[in-house]
Nucleic acid binder design. Structure first.
Lengths: 147, 147
DNA sequence: TCATTAAAAGACATCTATATCTTTTTTATT
DNA sequence: AATAAAAAAGATATAGATGTCTTTTAATGA
């Protein structure tokens, strides 16, 4: 796996909130879990973390739910990765060699560096808003249909 | 993680056998587990699989151990990945969407395709022999020193 | 043929990511 | 103030990757 399931849930979750935001309403967990076909309680944990990190807003109580934060659409994809998977994977030798670095590279060091830097560049430049701009006609369907 | 620990153990294991092969001798599990600082029985499982898939030779009994197969140095890195991690990661949508494809792409489809294809190309062209040719002065040290 | 060596095989254990359940806290409405 | 709604928080459960142990099989040499 390149990225964890948690990352996938987080991204689909925040994009769903963004889509519903255009309709001028908040989103609640039950609706999200249902529409995105994601385990409710597991999604709750992930959404909570996004709120804590300032990627989303939430309000408790009746008519509460999740809504966009000023920063949501400006959030880089890499921030989501950091939140769900951590950044260790970009700095850890695939052969688990502690002393692997540019001066003392393992046999795969350069190969992996290239791949990782490509991914890092991609995810460091793209924002959540960018994904919404690249209009996919079946966008809402695409982030919903897991089955 | 981009690749599993099993993959790292497999690669270091087979490269170690290749190095010792130049000294004209076979290698036994105890020596490998010791030198590579890898759990003996777990390494055994991985080595066994490589033998089964024809990446390495082995002989039982006294003076037995692991040795090179004609195909060892010609083995593509991707074959090792296939053996330890499987290929699903290259074909599965990171958002876990079953219907994600070129016709009906998820918001990250193109981004991931680029990254994956880069990795696939890299690992499909490089062989174990290539890694040994790119002479790293501290090569043996580098695949051994995990601590 | 017998003892010894070493890999093969399979059963068992642990650890981490994933998933679920229950209780607590906050907010809104009456 | 009382009730209800919904997220937050924390405890518990499951599954898959990782790691360990024991038994079996095959090869060697005396």
């Amino acid at each position: 796996m390149f990225l964890s399931k948690s990352f996938g849930y987080a991204l689909r979750g925040v994009l769903y909130v963004a889509l519903i935001h255009k309709e001028g309403r908040k989103v609640q967990l039950d609706e999200m879990a249902d529409k995105l076909k994601v385990p409710r309680h597991f999604l709750a944990k992930i959404m909570k973390n996004m709120v804590k990190e300032g990627v989303l807003n939430s309000t408790k109580g009746p008519y509460g739910g999740f809504s966009l934060h000023e920063s949501t659409l400006k959030t880089k994809l890499i921030s989501l990765v950091k939140l769900t998977d951590g950044m260790a994977q970009f700095n850890t030798c695939v052969l688990s060699l502690r002393k692997c670095n540019n001066e003392n590279p393992c046999p795969l060091h350069l190969n992996m560096l290239k791949i990782r830097d490509g991914m890092l560049a991609e995810f460091s430049s793209k924002t959540l808003g960018d994904l919404l701009d690249e209009k996919n006609p079946d966008f809402i369907k695409s982030i919903s249909t897991i089955a």
